[in-house]
Design a protein around this nucleic acid. Structure first.
Lengths: 234, 234
DNA sequence: AATGCTATACTTGTATAGCAGAAAGTGTAT
DNA sequence: ATACACTTTCTGCTATACAAGTATAGCATT
């Protein structure tokens, strides 16, 4: 404890000393998004409780949260299953995300905050520097980028919604290896958006964000035909 | 079994025979929104399990769902509390809702569906006919109205988000007695929106929806000063 | 061959009992 | 009045058990 306590206190949040249930929830969430747990796969409470040597209760609680996020489906007396990706839902969610993030980027463009621009450029640099194939690292930096923009606009609620939508879209991206293949392309789109924000050109920023978020529309049909049984509604 | 089996089979859904935990969740959700459980009030797992003669587990599961909706806050080793209404969060959520519903009403205006218009006018009539002071009944019809419009636009995901935002906003409305006092005013706004949709006037419909959703901005400060300890962030 | 039946195993939902650990309240002694 | 010890209360977690719905495999019947 050599740092000044003032700083610690400011940044201190009750920490929620992560319960086992919450930890498991985060773990399984990432596992589903990154395709470690496959769409349609059954995951029972007892199986998980044995694997992690915990009781059923925290597993149940993790499952409930995953079900609320539509990442699993609990079918009573049958089992709990990793949800297949609903094409309809991904498109519907993507549409909403576009509306949200376009409106956010418009607001941010009106602000002219040099510190924000620096921070975003820093993130883009880090994105380019991620190890090839390390989709997880790129994903986190992508997440951080969109979050920074949203929170800078004071749109916390909008970010929470976007976060949830992003989870569904990232499931598709992980299947498509988009992160690995088009790392520089995506980072380039980010850079263009930041340039437009810096220039205060809201219309351009909005247009670029729109294009950025429509990338998945081209990817989706390809992935669906490649892994048809990971999807529903097609 | 006199109906044709084809129709039955198509409409068959497993029905999800509501578990105790889910039932309790719905019950408590309504109780919090309608002010039966007060902001800041403590509600322990054991208390609830005794009151409804059930075990702690389903109570915990109901609490988790309420926490995800930000209607309660679970503070480990301290207790579970009905969340005070965050003014900042209500404004932030309202802002998002405006963006969502304005975009939806624009889409619907381009559709020209006579059946939809009839259904909406029917709902407005029912809204006017609710018993004076029966805020619960009006609320359900209001919910049904916004839901019908959203789902007609095929925006299921957007509706789920709106539903969650609406919960926070309705907490304020219930405190303000807005439903009782301005039942006809609100129904009138609905009617104007439906007229604009029917006329295919997307700009007008959007403008009216915007105005409709900004009503709470006038209400909020009044309610905050009337019940200061039900709120945070003011 | 198709259908019906039965035994079996597995799933989630719920109950009960209990303990750990943190926080809050209470009372006592100084 | 303050400090300290005791008690209570709360959530998080464990363990065990049972009910009831569901899937499956195998066998018997038609």
């Amino acid at each position: 404890m050599k740092n000044s306590p003032e700083v610690k206190i400011q940044n201190f949040l009750p920490q929620e000393s992560q319960s086992i249930g919450s930890q498991l929830h985060r773990l399984l969430r990432a596992a589903i998004i990154e395709g470690e747990l496959l769409p349609g796969q059954i995951i029972s409470e007892i199986e998980m409780s044995k694997r992690f040597d915990i009781s059923r209760q925290p597993v149940r609680e993790a499952f409930i949260k995953l079900a609320e996020e539509r990442l699993v489906e609990v079918r009573p007396q049958r089992g709990t299953f990793v949800r297949k990706i609903s094409v309809k839902e991904v498109l519907d969610a993507r549409h909403l995300r576009e509306i949200i993030e376009v409106s956010i980027v418009r607001e941010v463009s009106a602000k002219h905050d040099a510190e924000l621009i620096n921070r975003l450029r820093q993130l883009i640099t880090q994105q380019k520097e991620t190890a090839p194939g390390d989709a997880h690292a790129f994903l986190e930096l992508d997440e951080e980028m969109h979050r920074t923009i949203a929170l800078h606009a004071g749109r916390e609620y909008a970010w929470r919604v976007t976060e949830s939508i992003k989870a569904q879209m990232n499931r598709v991206r992980f299947l498509s290896f988009d992160f690995a293949q088009s790392k520089f392309e995506l980072a380039g789109e980010h850079a263009a958006i930041v340039d437009a924000i810096e220039a205060g050109n809201a219309d351009l920023a909005a247009q670029l964000m729109e294009k950025h978020l429509r990338g998945i529309l081209a990817t989706l049909p390809r992935v669906v035909s490649q892994y048809p049984d990971y999807f529903t509604d097609n």
